[in-house]
């Protein structure tokens, strides 16, 4: 699996299931904001972009009233991660 993923990255092959690409991109973008993931934001954005948001609202509400969905944090914690992200991608570009 790891080898297949590395080959796909090297060849620039995008996920054939559109939703997977949307989820991964939203996940990493959220990390770049906060360093950590705010799971409700990632879920909300993924479901909005894949047309599932309305269907998921009743469950989201049940989780919210049980304290399992928190309000999003201020996007202040991602500075260190963003610098690391840029370094990693720059090194890979240099190596190509």
């Amino acid at each position: 699996m790891e080898a297949a993923r590395l080959l796909a990255l090297k060849k620039g092959i995008k996920p054939s299931v559109r939703e997977i690409g949307i989820y991964y991109r939203g996940f990493v973008d959220n990390m770049r904001l906060n360093g950590k993931i705010h799971d409700a934001s990632v879920a909300g954005i993924t479901q909005l972009l894949t047309g599932q948001l309305i269907a998921s609202l009743p469950l989201a509400w049940k989780l919210f009233v049980r304290g399992r969905v928190k309000l999003p944090p201020l996007p202040l914690g991602g500075g260190g991660y963003r610098r690391m992200y840029n370094r990693a991608l720059a090194r890979e570009r240099e190596a190509r």
Partner: peptide, 19 residues
């Protein structure tokens, strides 16, 4: 920080290890 799960390695191999 987040472990990066499968999302960070899907962007870059090095990022998927460093995260």
């Amino acid at each position: 920080i987040c472990c990066g799960t499968l999302a960070a390695p899907s962007i870059s191999h090095l990022l998927g290890l460093a995260t």
